[in-house]
């Protein structure tokens, strides 16, 4: 289907690709440029700042009223713990769905998929009351704690994640585990020592998707977290910018750049696994 290009063939192809490159990269350049521009306003910003300064970044660490650097740290901690726990629990569940034969296996997998379609954020009242009551029992898991928030996110360990992982486990031949079991390994040992190392790509994909999803969630976080010092970035950043683009643009841009960094870094590291994982059927969450 593809042929060597003529001069004009190459020209229009690169022309179109450059148009899309501008579309994809312009907002990113614009924000990076604004973050180094000390003017701190949208008005009259140029693509290349005339003066370069780190004032906006300094503001992230020094502003007491809007501790944006702290919010980024909170987001990273909450997302890291959530994703690690989700990957652990999901891989256990997916192993059972993939390797054991038991009553209700297919129904269970399907129901867990279906149930996850429910928009959990719209049941924020139920979630709030639940966490409030759990907090009476275990104050460490109550309202305005990161542990309570993480627990709420763990509800997503089943569903698409488990289905994605089960699909990957299914493609790993069982012969390796069988021989391990003949040598006396328990199913759990077979899972832990054989399946998990082989399934590293899908573990990475689920980790990445869960991390991005948790990092970006702001409705439940804004309901459950009440004090400014415990906000996640997704909650804090929109409260910070709230239509004040004219006079907070520079600091906001710096916060965007710094706040996007954890995801971009993770993305760069795990990108090679992403194509195979995504074609298995995930949607950015």
């Amino acid at each position: 289907m593809y042929r060597r290009h003529t001069f004009f063939g190459a020209l229009w192809r690169h022309g179109i690709l450059l148009v899309f490159l501008v579309f994809a990269l312009f907002p990113i350049f614009w924000v990076i440029s604004a973050s180094f521009n000390p003017a701190n306003t949208l008005v009259g910003q140029s693509l290349i700042p005339k003066v370069v300064s780190l004032d906006n970044y300094r503001e992230l660490f020094t502003n007491q009223q809007h501790p944006i650097a702290l919010w980024i740290k909170n987001s990273v901690i909450v997302s890291l713990i959530t994703s690690a726990l989700v990957v652990t629990m999901t891989s256990l569940a997916a192993y059972a769905f993939s390797r054991f034969r038991f009553k209700g296996r297919r129904t269970g997998l399907f129901i867990s998929l279906l149930v996850q379609v429910f928009p959990q954020m719209l049941a924020a009242v139920a979630v709030y009351l639940l966490i409030l009551n759990i907090g009476k029992l275990f104050p460490a898991l109550g309202i305005n704690t990161h542990a309570g928030l993480i627990m709420v996110y763990l509800g997503g360990a089943m569903g698409v994640n488990a289905w994605l992982m089960k699909g990957y486990f299914d493609t790993i031949p069982t012969s390796l585990e069988e021989s391990a079991m003949i040598d006396g390994a328990t199913p759990f040992q077979a899972f832990y020592m054989i399946i998990l190392p082989l399934a590293r790509p899908i573990l990475a994909v689920v980790f990445l998707l869960q991390f991005i999803g948790t990092y970006s969630e702001f409705i439940l976080a804004s309901v459950l977290i009440t004090s400014s010092s415990k906000y996640t970035l997704a909650v804090g950043l929109q409260l910070f910018i709230h239509d004040q683009y004219a006079n907070r643009w520079g600091v906001f841009a710096a916060a965007s750049v710094l706040g996007a960094l954890p995801i971009v870094i993770l993305f760069m590291f795990l990108q090679k696994y992403l194509v195979s994982g995504l074609t298995h059927g995930a949607v950015k969450g």
Partner: peptide, 8 residues
Amino acid sequence: LLPATFFM
């Protein structure tokens, strides 16, 4: 299945 199902 227990841990994931519990939280679900």
